[in-house]
């Protein structure tokens, strides 16, 4: 699928970058003229994926998070968030709502949020090599008023 526009970003896995990452993607998505709700959905889904990199992939270290975004035909936004961290042993289990390995203050709903706030979610992971989360969001076509 040929991208109409793209951007890439590499950031260290510091928790201060959570807000930077979601705002960067939301700003890029703005050219698709999304609704307030769609922008909020995108920010939330990106925040979950980036938080997973920080909390899980690079749990006791700082590593690089790679964000690649593409605008595809028919007002679709593809967001790829990749890390070279520890990887996920059992993706199916990790994606189950309320499952978490991170203890009491984490809800275990990160993937559930990504799934419900985007139109498509793919997770690829190799133990010891890293994880790539790919999300796609369709932006509604609005009549000009």
């Amino acid at each position: 699928m040929k991208a109409i526009n793209t951007f890439s970003l590499k950031i260290p896995s510091r928790s201060t970058n959570e807000s930077f990452a979601r705002v960067a993607v939301a700003s890029f998505a703005a050219q698709l003229d999304p609704t307030v709700e769609e922008i909020s959905d995108i920010k939330t889904a990106v925040s979950e994926a980036v938080t997973n990199c920080i909390v899980h992939a690079y749990a006791n270290t700082i590593g690089d998070i790679y964000i690649n975004c593409a605008i595809l035909p028919e007002k679709r936004l593809r967001i790829k968030i990749k890390d070279k961290g520890c990887g996920i042993e059992d993706i199916k289990q990790a994606m189950e709502p309320l499952f978490t390995t991170a203890g009491g203050e984490r809800a275990g709903l990160g993937f559930a949020v990504m799934e419900s706030f985007t139109d498509n979610l793919k997770v690829r992971s190799t133990l010891g090599k890293g994880t790539t989360v790919t999300m796609e969001k369709r932006i509604s076509v609005r009549e000009n008023v």
Binding site: T44, T51, G104, E105, A107, L109, G110, A112
Partner: peptide, 16 residues
């Protein structure tokens, strides 16, 4: 103005 599932964790933790 913004909340992700960390906010849910925050609420669940306080509930417990």
């Amino acid at each position: 103005t913004f909340m992700d599932s960390s906010g849910i964790g925050l609420v669940m933790g306080r509930y417990k």
